[in-house]
């Protein structure tokens, strides 16, 4: 074959395959909006479910998901970033460090339902937290740790070594160098990890199944030790466990979950843009 034709065919093939990635995204959004938009109303967003979930709203589930996600991020982000700083800036290459790194890789490979069982055993039963926001959030935060640690380490690693040397050569201490030179320049990258994690945590069902989520709670949580309804779990229930469920409520719930994740990601993205602007290189 003529090399020019071969090149054209290769290019077209690669382009078409790449283009195919858009299709599922568009379809998901299209189907969910088409089927679910009619359910969205003031009442749907801000009241509790009625008639065995077949009517009313999903307000407790929205609040539940938001509180679980925010608690989980509040735990996992600082822990993950601190571990990443230790591993990237302080740890020497010895047996302990290698064991820690191996553990992180393995944590990332554990299926999410196993995290759910782990959370049930450790947080709910052993630490007697009961099925609660805090137990679910802690379970999710452990699940997200490897993601946060890995993305944060990459972000720290991408700060040029020469910045550290310039700061250290002035007699500035190692911690001050990390705090005032390395961290500010790694923040945008760290935020990217946080954004991905928020999206993933919001949609997880298995880890909160036994640790936080309730089938039905008509009121809002009063403390972190309360059980809550959560959007992904609620979605699972209404689409499989309840007969004669109006389809638009199911899709409406999915739409709300989608928008919620998007909104939280946008908030994190705008923070990242803010940090990037402060970065001058």
């Amino acid at each position: 074959m003529n090399p020019k034709t071969a090149q054209k065919i290769a290019f077209s093939l690669l382009f078409i395959v790449t283009l195919l990635i858009i299709v599922p995204v568009l379809l998901i959004v299209f189907i969910i909006v088409k089927e679910g938009a009619s359910a969205i109303s003031w009442e749907f967003l801000f009241t509790a479910p009625k008639d065995g979930m077949r009517a009313g709203g999903i307000f407790p589930a929205i609040v539940g998901t938001l509180s679980i996600v925010l608690c989980a991020i509040a735990v996992t982000l600082p822990m993950g970033v601190m571990a990443a700083i230790y591993l990237n800036e302080y740890a020497k290459d010895n047996l302990l460090t290698r064991i820690i790194k191996l553990s992180i890789v393995n944590l990332a490979g554990v299926p999410s339902v196993v995290y759910g069982l782990f959370g049930l055993a450790v947080f709910v039963m052993f630490l007697k937290m009961g099925v609660s926001i805090i137990a679910g959030a802690l379970t999710l935060s452990i699940m997200e740790l490897p993601v946060i640690i890995t993305t944060s380490r990459n972000a720290l690693n991408s700060v040029p070594q020469s910045f550290r040397e310039a700061s250290l050569s002035l007699g500035v201490s190692k911690w001050q160098t990390i705090r005032h030179v390395v961290l500010p320049n790694a923040l945008p990258g760290i935020m990217t990890g946080a954004i991905l994690s928020i999206a993933r945590i919001s949609g997880e069902t298995a880890p909160i199944l036994f640790t936080a989520a309730a089938f039905y709670v008509p009121h809002l949580p009063r403390s972190v030790f309360d059980q809550v309804m959560a959007l992904p779990y609620h979605l699972y229930i209404i689409s499989t466990q309840i007969p004669n469920m109006p389809a638009n409520i199911t899709y409406g719930t999915a739409l709300v979950l989608l928008v919620l994740v998007l909104a939280m990601s946008l908030a994190a993205i705008s923070m990242r843009i803010y940090f990037r602007k402060k970065k001058k290189w």
Partner: peptide, 26 residues
């Protein structure tokens, strides 16, 4: 030690901050 023995590197290595902040940093 490093405060007493300052160093100027082969490539100019300004920190990613303003001119003022660079000099005032130490």
């Amino acid at each position: 030690l490093r405060k007493r023995c300052g160093m100027v590197f082969a490539l100019p290595l300004p920190l990613p901050m303003s001119i003022y902040e660079n000099v005032g940093y130490g």
